[in-house]
Design a protein around this nucleic acid. Structure first.
Length: 342
DNA sequence: AAACATTCCAACCGCAAAGCA
DNA sequence: GTGCTTTGCGGTTGGAATGTT
């Protein structure tokens, strides 16, 4: 016995809405207000499912919808929010006035997602940057609770997300500043995830959702350097996302779907994309060229590849100067964290 | 100009949480 | 506390529009 249908589908119309239907729906809602979607079609005289009416109203008929193409600024916002929130389209849409979750989702899938470039595996480490963004816990399906939609709420949530900014840097050699990005997802270390969660869960933060900067901001984490040290070398599967914001010198690094799936299956429930928005002066041609090289070489011999990027504390020379991250130059460490959280 | 391929997006679907009796 | 209904979410799909051969 199958699931009961959400509404009586027999005799209901499907497919594109006609202008007449739009007018009928709009007039009814203007008169009676939103809500009671189940009974709305019958009351309004529409041969449509209530869900269909709701969707049509939300995505097309509402007066406060913004028409026209997504602007560069909006796109930038989407990229950044997606880096933090993942596919939480409604949440992203809530920060883009006049845009719907469906519109953003479609835009992402058709315009932005294909801009992702992969960095298939270099040898050693993994980089899944552990971070905290102040976002409500993701619910699989289901509507967002009213509590979660309230402003000035406090979340305690772990999300392996970060938006980084670094000082000016020219990316001429793929060996300088970041950890190897290993697309091989075989060794995702689940205990690390739990460990990270435990650390991250220490962080509570009040959030004003009206402020995107605040949403995107990272909470002050105690011992973040320790987390980075323990986490970064073991994270896997990163895909480089070179968005069209090249002109703005933004770059995003994100966890691959495979990694996300892995993490999800580990019981984490949800793993948002990691990202790096590197607001700096990259040599993009080199980046892309390097990406191509790495990709081709990866097909030949993954093990022999050198680290394209490493974190400073993974560098031997650096490490020799500082046996232990916790004992290193405090100023440098603080600077790194400041940059990391900026 | 026709056939085929690709892109884009409106709409559908199932799931799960909130709400309520 | 329980069960049913309503609502919201995100993934997926179908087909129109557009591009390419």
């Amino acid at each position: 016995m199958g699931r009961a249908p959400c509404c009586e589908k027999v005799g209901l119309k499907k497919g594109r809405w006609t202008a007449e239907e739009d007018e009928t729906l709009a007039k009814y809602i203007q008169t009676n207000g939103e809500g009671s979607w189940r009974s709305l079609p019958k009351n309004a005289g529409l041969l449509r499912c209530g869900k269909s009416c709701r969707l049509r109203w939300i995505n097309y008929l509402r007066a406060d919808l913004k028409r026209g193409n997504i602007s560069a600024e909006e796109e930038n916002t989407i990229v950044k929010l997606h880096a933090s929130f993942g596919n939480r389209w409604s949440l992203i849409a809530s920060h883009l006035p006049g845009r719907t979750d469906n519109e953003i989702k479609n835009y992402w899938n058709s315009h932005l997602s294909r801009k992702i470039y992969s960095f298939p595996g270099a040898s050693a480490g993994i980089m899944d940057t552990p971070k905290v963004a102040s976002i409500p816990p993701k619910l699989k399906g289901g509507r967002t609770s009213r509590w979660a939609m309230n402003k000035n709420k406090t979340y305690t949530q772990n999300v392996n997300v970060a938006i980084y900014q670094r000082p000016k840097q020219t990316f001429t050699q793929p060996n300088s500043d970041f950890t190897v990005l290993d697309a091989d997802v075989a060794d995702v270390n689940e205990p690390r995830i739990e460990e990270l969660e435990a650390e991250v869960n220490k962080c509570d933060r009040s959030v004003d959702e009206s402020n995107d900067e605040d949403i995107l901001g990272l909470c002050q984490m105690e011992g973040i350097s320790d987390i980075l040290e323990s986490w970064l070398p073991e994270t896997t599967c990163v895909v480089w996302d070179l968005s069209e914001e090249i002109d703005n010198n933004d770059m995003v690094v994100r966890v691959s779907d495979a990694c996300r799936d892995k993490m999800a299956s580990s019981g984490e429930g949800y793993s948002c994309s990691s990202s790096m928005a590197l607001d700096q002066h990259w040599d993009w041609e080199s980046v892309i060229e390097f990406n191509n090289v790495v990709e081709s070489e990866a097909c030949n011999n993954w093990e022999q590849q050198e680290k394209p990027l490493t974190w400073p504390w993974e560098d031997d020379a650096w490490e020799s100067q500082s046996k232990n991250l916790g004992e290193t130059d405090t100023q440098m460490q603080n600077d790194m964290v400041d940059w990391f959280l900026s």
